[in-house]
């Protein structure tokens, strides 16, 4: 098949919108959680004693009015996007708000906020309000297929994030464990096994984290390695969250984990997701098991 024909197939293919609908709900929730931290940082930026570090000339001043508008815009659009009401408009407003915060100042930038901006934008293009949304429920229409190409880009984005995260860590400071020593509380380990062994363990952890990121970036694309890659990804993020002591950073890592975990769903077919759901349900205590009737959800 020619490159042109391949590209044509990518941009004309249509898919079941339900996994994208689930991702939209989780991403909406993640943006709402991230708002807790966002408000605190934006309010501090507003203080006259705070240094401003704008890195684009067109960034607005972080005045009271600008900060209030951003916070309200963020909260309302994230809520509407999550429940799927006026999804396209809410998603567009949310992506614009997140982009503004990302570009406002060097201190308001964060990688997962930048990622959220891209993901929300792509979910709007993926017509993510077609399933599991108030829009779909109120329209009372059959669930129609959604364009596949934004989903392909979302999947590619997952691999890009992990691949470059891994590549950028291949440097002396990270591999020596010094970087991890800055963010992980180590006193108990040093007391128990000494500084030399602690640094050796950190260095090993650094190598393992790079290997995990690379494995997830590649493994999610390999059909018979997908479950393993997703499990490794879950373990990687749980490890990150558990090892960081700073509550602000920890909250940001929770948001990052939610973003990435929800995007893993897009690598699986609806049939694989149903099977995965059944497998998880079988392991739950009987009283917690959901009733599985196999029918497609309404809306």
């Amino acid at each position: 098949m020619s490159l042109e024909a391949r590209l044509h197939r990518i941009v004309t293919k249509r898919i079941d919108p339900r996994p994208v609908g689930v991702v939209r709900v989780v991403i909406g929730l993640a943006t709402l959680i991230r708002l807790i931290d966002g408000v605190a940082i934006l309010r501090r930026l507003q203080s006259p004693t705070t240094l401003r570090l704008p890195y684009v000339t067109f960034a607005p001043e972080a005045t009271e009015t600008v900060v209030t508008a951003l916070v309200i815009g963020w909260a309302v659009s994230a809520g509407l996007f999550m429940v799927g009401r006026w999804t396209r408009t809410a998603g567009t407003l949310l992506a614009a708000t997140l982009a503004t915060v990302t570009l406002l100042d060097q201190q308001t930038y964060s990688n997962h906020l930048y990622l959220l901006t891209l993901v929300v934008g792509l979910l709007v293009l993926a017509d993510a309000g077609r399933a599991f949304s108030l829009d779909a429920r109120l329209a009372r229409r059959e669930v129609a297929l959604a364009p596949a190409w934004p989903v392909t880009l979302l999947k590619l984005q997952v691999s890009v994030v992990y691949a470059f995260a891994a590549l950028s860590k291949v440097n002396e400071a990270y591999l020596s464990g010094i970087m991890l020593a800055q963010v992980i509380p180590l006193q108990a380990a040093v007391d128990a096994i000494g500084i030399r062994a602690t640094m050796a363990a950190l260095s090993a952890a650094a190598v393992i984290s790079i290997a995990l990121e690379a494995a997830v970036a590649i493994g999610l694309w390999i059909p018979n390695r997908r479950h393993l890659a997703a499990a490794l990804g879950v373990a990687l993020h749980v490890g990150m969250i558990a090892s960081i002591a700073d509550p602000t950073v920890r909250l940001q890592l929770v948001v990052f984990a939610l973003e990435m975990w929800s995007l893993y769903l897009l690598f699986f077919t609806p049939a694989e997701l149903r099977e995965l759901g059944r497998r998880i349900a079988r392991r739950l205590p009987a009283r917690l098991r959901p009733r599985v009737d196999g029918r497609a959800p309404a809306g």
């Binding site: 990688n111 930048y114 890009v160 994030v161 470059f164 995260a165 950028s168 860590k169 990270y174």
Partner: peptide, 27 residues
Amino acid sequence: VQLLVPAGLLFLPRAQRFGWQMYSSAH
């Protein structure tokens, strides 16, 4: 954009914005 920008940023000192270089270097 998603391939070239982060790839180009790998040639600059860590950590750079827009390059997915989370926790890549000690500061």
